[in-house]
């Protein structure tokens, strides 16, 4: 199935929860969907006979610019039917939250924790959302574009970049 066909199918099923289809300027054709509906859409793509998206290859947080919203990108593959789809959701900078898909694809568990750790995106419904790379007492979310490194961490100096 081509991405275009998958997009058409999703649009007719989920209506305005499926926002747009991006082909230009992205590496893979991408379907932008609503952040609250991502869990339903991923379940649908997994369970439907004609999609069988049984594997999540990657899940990544992204911050393009201090002005814009955060996004989360999902790369799904069907190992049975050998087709791919990329999904993307946007979420606000002030209160970033996205529905968790950790219960649907186990891969998402640690990936969502990573996105939470580095971007501070809250994955609602995640079974154990805590930092995965940084220490638990770390302050701030390092991969945000507006992140300013602290001067010290537990008494150890983090050199200031000029």
């Amino acid at each position: 199935m081509t991405e275009q066909e998958i997009y058409a199918d999703l649009s007719s099923k989920f209506g305005d929860k499926v926002i747009e289809f991006m082909e230009e300027g992205t590496l893979n054709p991408t379907v932008v969907v609503d952040a609250g509906a991502i869990a339903k859409i991923v379940t649908y793509l997994k369970d439907e006979e004609r999609f069988q998206f049984d594997s999540l290859m990657n899940l990544a947080g992204h911050d393009a610019d201090v002005e814009t919203e955060f996004s989360v990108i999902y790369h799904l593959v069907s190992t049975e039917l050998k087709h791919y789809i990329t999904l993307k959701v946007f979420t606000s900078r002030d209160e970033p939250k996205v529905a968790s898909i950790a219960e649907i694809h186990r891969t998402a568990d640690w990936h969502e924790r990573e996105a939470f750790d580095l971007y501070g995106i809250n994955f609602e419904g995640h079974p154990d959302l805590k930092r995965i790379l940084m220490e638990d007492d770390w302050e701030g979310y390092p991969l945000r574009k507006d992140y300013v490194p602290a001067e010290f961490y537990r008494g150890m100096r983090i050199e200031k970049v000029k």
């Binding site: 790379l133 940084m134 390092p142 992140y147 490194p149 150890m156 100096r157 983090i158 050199e159 970049v161």
Partner: peptide
């Protein structure tokens, strides 16, 4: 700190600290 001298928010700049 080596290559992480700049932008190494997570790296100790020298173990002699």
């Amino acid at each position: 700190g080596g290559p992480y001298w700049q932008h190494g928010y997570h790296v100790l700049k020298g173990v002699d600290q």
